[in-house]
Amino acid sequence: MDHEGHEGMDHGSHEGMEHGSHEGMDHGGHEGMDHGDMEMSPGGIPLAEGGEDRDGLEMDVLQVRLGPVLRDWPAGLVLHCSLQGDVIVEAQAELVDGRARQDDDVVGPARGIDNIASLLALAGWDDAAAEARRIRDTALESGEGAAGSELERLRRRVRRSWTLRWSLRGVRRLSDKEAHARRLPADAVGDTYDRLMGMLDRAVAGVAATAAGDIGTRTNDAGRTLSTDHLAHLVMGLDLATARLVLASLDIHELLAGQAEHEVSHG
């Protein structure tokens, strides 16, 4: 594992406990239990709040913050999650250091290939992810045209993997209507597997267009700029790991701070 240093960086969840958003939650019902000589906030960590889970049973709610620095995660995105078990019941997305895109930023297929590498890594396929990263480097160093045949090979390899299809099939299926309502690009329709295939197809097409000298398609990723407003809804009701797969499958090239940044979205 060559990235140990980065794993588990995000543990700042304890500072960010905002209990203000839990009005109307039932704090009663705990009286009369035998607390013994229990300390109420050991090590300065306050007790978790309870809440109804999706099966209608009471379950702890834990506040965990994902991002802004996390492997295979959209840069700068911070997702404040309320977890019950590992299921995200409530989420709020914001952007750290939201800035306008600079001219010298990397655009075009390399960005897309990077996102493919992230999704493959999150799906637990280290080998294919490493291959995608290598292709991305080729695309950056020796021009995008050089990556064409390798990218085509990666696409074939991913398409042939029935275990990957089995794993990603049906994960957060989005209908036309939903995608439109959340102002997601039209190619976000379908499940996570469809979106991965779309990413690969777009990367292959983008590389081919660059090789042909067609600058027009190079910059057609304007549609891949998403507002943080629409992300939180997508991950609610999913478990932590699935949520990350779904976010990675959106092929985010650029994030915009949403207008409703401080509005909590309830599931």
């Binding site: 140990e4 794993e7 995000d10 996390l70 492997r71 590992d86 999150l122 275990t163 932590l240 790991a241």
Partner: peptide, 24 residues
């Protein structure tokens, strides 16, 4: 391999997320 989700990237290293040094 396929049974590594317990220590997977998608949960930031999972069970071994906080292991470091000799422990790891």
């Amino acid at each position: 391999g396929p049974f590594a989700p317990a220590i997977g990237t998608d949960v930031s290293g999972g069970a071994r997320a906080e292991l470091s040094g000799v422990d790891r």
